[in-house]
Amino acid sequence: MKSVALLAGFLLLVPMAQGAIDAYPFTDEAMESRYKALIEELRCPQCLNTNLAGSDAMIAQDLRREVHRMLLAGNSDAEILDFMHQRYGDFILYEPRVTSRTWLLWYGPLILLLAAGAVAALVVRRGAARANDIPDVDKDRLRRLLKD
């Protein structure tokens, strides 16, 4: 009985343990979902591999507040992303923009895939050519061997 009460107590605590939750008021649900999408997309500058939504770092809290403030002020998503990009650079966006500095990141894998495909095609074609290229002497000897 005691353990049931304890379990119930822990279950009550579960909602409190789900990461950083700020109680920001929104005027409508659409704005709230835009907020959530933005803090998912923006990366915490302090943490290398966590977005703003998942970080408790001070800068992440400040930037979430800034996103909220800009949404309430009527800024578009693009304006908010631009604002962050101007200050924190490509790092802040989990999907960095295509620029001269990032095109290798975007198209590098495709180039590697094409190169690998070309090498594979070459190997396969050479292998096929070699398979047709069995000397006649060998064929005669094979027949003889098979007859024996």
Binding site: P45, A57, I59, D62, R65
Partner: peptide, 13 residues
Amino acid sequence: GEGRLAIDLGVYG
């Protein structure tokens, strides 16, 4: 106090 100038400077720590 709110870290807003820091944000404008791209500061994160």
